[in-house]
Nucleic acid binder design. Structure first.
Lengths: 340, 340
DNA sequence: GTGAAAGCGCTAACAC
DNA sequence: GTGTTAGCGCTTTCAC
């Protein structure tokens, strides 16, 4: 490995000068030129580890997401990456697997590696602990999910609004027995979406004098299997629902599979997914969804983080991005599809 | 930040002892205990940057993939991650975006960060240059795609075999005008799959005295759009094909969309995809695919890399994993689906 | 504008 | 077993 002093010796200057050449210090043009030439010949690349140790900061940011196989998070990751690229930060992607312990390990690594900052989509609203990082003064931005009580910047989506919109849409299309497949208890995104559903359903049921049956709300694990199981349970009820609002994309896939197996396909049973299913274009009937701005979420979070890294002083802020309802065939109405 | 000497002072021992406690050196149990207790109280975490600088090696491996939004690569990444976890290596995921320049930047970062090793699914067979890394003695494993001339370990799939199997299957089901949507020229995976297709088609056509028409082979960009465009071109031919073998999953999605738009759905036009489409279960008709062992590919590559990192001396090796043909409805035969 | 020198936090010889 | 010491490659005062 060629070091800075190898280059210095070969160019007949001091290490300090070489360092200045590579970091924008004042050096006479011809010397700078000579140094650059020699460095190129020797194949010199500054050792970032040494630099980080010396400067006490790195040019790497960590991105911790709960599920790398979920297209929502990969799209978010792209947003982060593209934004980071602009300021020559590189992104280290860590997959916490919805596991708080694993997440904690990655947070510890981020601290130990002296990363410039961290963007985290928390595995749990209650149990994710960001204090170790923010306590050390490391910039942290929460994205998609904000752990309770964490004093960090955040970029969120308007989950409750999305949940309300989805539910109201199902009602407007004539569905009445509308169930909800929610995520794990404690996941803030799921809770908020569920709250939106509950709010609209209660309003509706109050008018008709009814009450929201507890069994209409099921909790899954955000994965395909959880969605399938929840849907199967719903279909097994004495009076199964005629529509379902599923709070994430993967569980929607599972729910659709369960519906297909039971031969009760949309729009006979209405389905709205919170978050787009990948390659939704291939799904038949096409799926009504609450669109999430995944890429923008990542992009915005990275911007916020970069400001903090650059030392911009401003109060903690939470940016909320809007969802939008995409109406397709899976909510055409209870009578549009089925014979009965 | 608490350093090793802070802990040493507080525990009344030398920094070396603290280091030994955290790295498995010989220390009397009671002292070790005291050090650990003090360290916990002070919230001490060893600074990995300093350690890396000192030991000249990191506990981080780089994984460079061409498309983070492709489920094949995320699944591969999971394999790498799970394997790495076993030896306490953390994985840094970098997305080269099928862009050789971007990839080169990440390779440079891997070198500058002194990563323990790198696993790379190369963006290009010809232009990806691994010599900078392997030249510095950094362990490198190529996965899925091996750059020409690189002296590195590799884990590959038997692409040619898969291409042959897919094509032979289409023939056996009665399809005759079988086209192929290949990837970018220069992508080794695509070339090998295409070679498999060509070999089987030539054998078949020789028997019937025919020749493989050049326009039956189209090149796409491995993305959805490329697949759609290629399929549209094929359908516009005077005598369009009655089946198509698509060399990657995303282009298959595009091809299916084009077929649907033209109202010529499988199995009337037979479709085999190389690589599973995510949530294939939702696609109707269900899709025949050449199954890729994505996760195993990652897992195996990580194993190979760890051996090299650990300094195991052995000749360069290439591990080839087998594909398997999954027959579903999209290749039921030219007469099974359509009226004509 | 340039060089000498100190030191970031850690580990690995080496002496005891 | 334990402490002392040197130094990984770099940046950054501080003199000049």
């Amino acid at each position: 490995m060629t070091t800075i002093s190898d280059v210095a010796r070969a160019a007949g200057v001091s290490p300090a000068t070489v360092s200045r050449v590579f970091n924008g210090g004042r050096v006479t043009p011809e010397r700078a030129e000579r140094v650059r030439k020699v460095a190129a010949e020797l194949g010199f690349a500054p050792n970032r580890v040494a630099r980080s140790l010396r400067t006490q900061r790195a040019s790497v940011i960590g991105l911790i997401i709960p599920d790398i196989e979920n297209p929502f998070f990969t799209s978010l990751a792209r947003g982060v990456e593209d934004a980071a690229q602009q300021t020559n930060l590189s992104v280290v992607l860590c997959n916490s697997d919805e596991d708080v312990a694993k997440e904690q390990r990655y947070l510890a690594i981020a601290a130990a590696e002296q990363m410039a900052g961290v963007i985290v989509a928390a595995a749990s609203r209650n149990r994710t602990d960001l204090s170790a990082l923010s306590g050390r003064g490391m910039p942290v931005v929460a994205v998609d999910r904000r752990p309770r009580g964490a004093s960090v910047d955040a970029v969120m989506v308007d989950n409750q609004h999305g949940g309300e919109e989805a539910t109201a849409h199902l009602l407007s299309r004539g569905y009445r027995r509308i169930a909800c497949i929610a995520g794990p208890e404690g996941a803030s995104t799921s809770e908020e979406r569920l709250a939106g559903y509950r709010a609209v359903m209660r309003d509706h049921l109050r008018e008709t004098g009814g009450k929201l049956p507890g069994e209409w709300v099921r909790h899954g694990d955000f994965r395909v299997e959880g969605g399938r199981a929840a849907m199967a349970e719903l279909l097994a009820l004495p009076e199964p629902p005629d529509a379902v609002f599923v709070v994430n994309n993967l569980m929607t896939v599972g729910a659709l599979e369960a519906l297909r197996e039971a031969d009760r396909e949309p729009p006979g049973v209405g389905v709205v997914s919170f978050g787009d299913v990948p390659w939704a274009s291939l799904v038949r009937p096409s799926l009504s969804t609450v669109q999430l701005p995944a890429y923008d979420l990542g992009w915005t979070a990275a911007g916020l983080l970069q400001d903090r890294i650059a030392g911009v002083v401003k109060p903690l802020q939470t940016v909320v991005l809007r969802t939008s309802l995409q109406i397709r065939d899976s909510t055409a109405g209870p009578l549009a599809g089925a014979a009965g």
